[in-house]
């Protein structure tokens, strides 16, 4: 144990010397450029002399933003979650380095290996702003940390704009946000006409459990609102919560939207004894999102989620919309030619 700590201290000392050596030339050479200033979601202002060339991004949703910006070459470390689960094929298709698993993964949304992050000598580390301990540990060692926290769609726009500045792709960031706003407006325009009393009431179900949902202060709330529906628990000022079955019966939603769930399908809910009296189940209006990569609510891809929910909720109103085509167009617009399919 003691030995471990000792070698750890020695390692950090060596690392610290390395860092101070490697930083000075960067700072010196940056004098000619206009300094870049970004504000992260903690409200902390970071100043860079030039666009970040070595980015460690431990959040999958933020990484997808970096790929949209076309700044993937500036990424030197990613979240371990990229190599697991169902997002891998998409990134593998876009990036040969990820396909060959050569990009280091020094952590994920939950855990950060401080030592490995430092070893990558990053210009900036992007992680969740609630990972306060990891942030403190990284900042203590002189690293820039860009903390992210997404609660509403404006946060997603803001994230892209700030990441655009950070990577030197501000123009592309503007384009992406414009495009997304336009797409949202295209759908939102139609649902605006729906009178309040005809708005469908939607229960959103996370994959963790049938009774886990998101309430008033969440991207889910935005999603449902933009699609013209009403979140059954929208009046509760919470992000994530577990509700009572009885409460759901009382809400009696018209539509149930399931987050992508490996273990359950809409048919499982429809055939569940507990759910049989819910209007959405009686009317077979239970829908499940496809894989997370396509509709991640914490990315600009939430437009596709909005489109799906809108069409599921008001099939008549969106009769002309082909979701498959919408998806392909969106992927092309956001990622360019990178995603082949």
């Amino acid at each position: 144990m003691n030995k471990k700590i000792k070698s750890g201290i020695i390692f950090f000392l060596i690392m610290a010397t390395n860092l101070s050596l490697s930083y000075s030339p960067v700072l010196a050479s940056g004098k000619n450029d206009v300094p870049i200033t970004v504000t992260d979601f903690r409200g902390k202002t970071l100043t860079f002399s030039k666009p970040a060339q070595r980015i460690v991004c431990l959040i999958e949703s933020a990484l997808s933003g970096i790929y949209m910006l076309g700044a993937e070459k500036q990424v030197v470390g990613i979240s371990a979650n990229i190599y697991q689960g169902n997002v891998y094929p998409y990134y593998a298709a876009m990036d040969q380095r990820i396909k060959n698993k050569t990009v280091p993964a020094p952590g994920n949304w939950d855990f950060v290996n401080i030592e490995s992050v430092i070893a990558l000598k990053p210009d900036v580390v992007i992680i969740w702003s609630k990972q306060t301990e990891s942030i403190a540990a990284l900042e203590e060692r002189g690293l820039h940390v860009f903390g992210v926290f997404i609660e509403k769609k404006e946060d997603v726009y803001r994230e892209i704009i700030e990441l655009g500045k950070l990577t030197g792709k501000s123009q592309r960031a503007q384009e992406l946000v414009e495009y997304t706003k336009k797409e949202i407006e295209r759908f939102n325009k139609r649902v605006k006409a729906i009178p309040e009393e005809k708005r469908q009431r939607i229960y959103y179900m996370w994959a963790q459990g049938n009774l886990e949902t998101s309430c008033g202060r969440s991207t889910v709330q935005d999603l449902i609102h933009l699609a013209g529906g009403k979140n059954v628990c929208g009046l509760i000022d919470n992000e994530h919560m577990v509700v009572n079955m009885e409460q759901i019966m009382a809400w009696n939603p018209d539509v149930i939207v399931m987050w992508y769930n490996e273990k359950k399908n809409p048919s499982d809910i429809i055939n569940d004894e507990h759910w049989k009296l819910i209007r959405a189940v009686k009317e077979r209006r239970v829908h499940e999102f496809p894989e997370i990569f396509l509709c991640d609510l914490w990315t600009l891809k939430f437009t596709y989620a909005v489109k799906m929910v809108a069409k599921w909720t008001y099939p008549e109103l969106f009769r002309d919309i082909d979701l498959e085509r919408e998806k392909k167009t969106m992927l092309r617009m956001l990622y360019g030619k990178k995603t082949g399919n």
Partner: peptide, 21 residues
């Protein structure tokens, strides 16, 4: 479990909301 920590909290804090026949 893809949702890891939440599920652990549920085990270690005990709950009855999933009660069923």
């Amino acid at each position: 479990d893809p949702f890891k920590l939440q599920t652990i909290v549920h085990w270690t804090m005990g709950n009855l909301h999933n009660a069923s026949w």
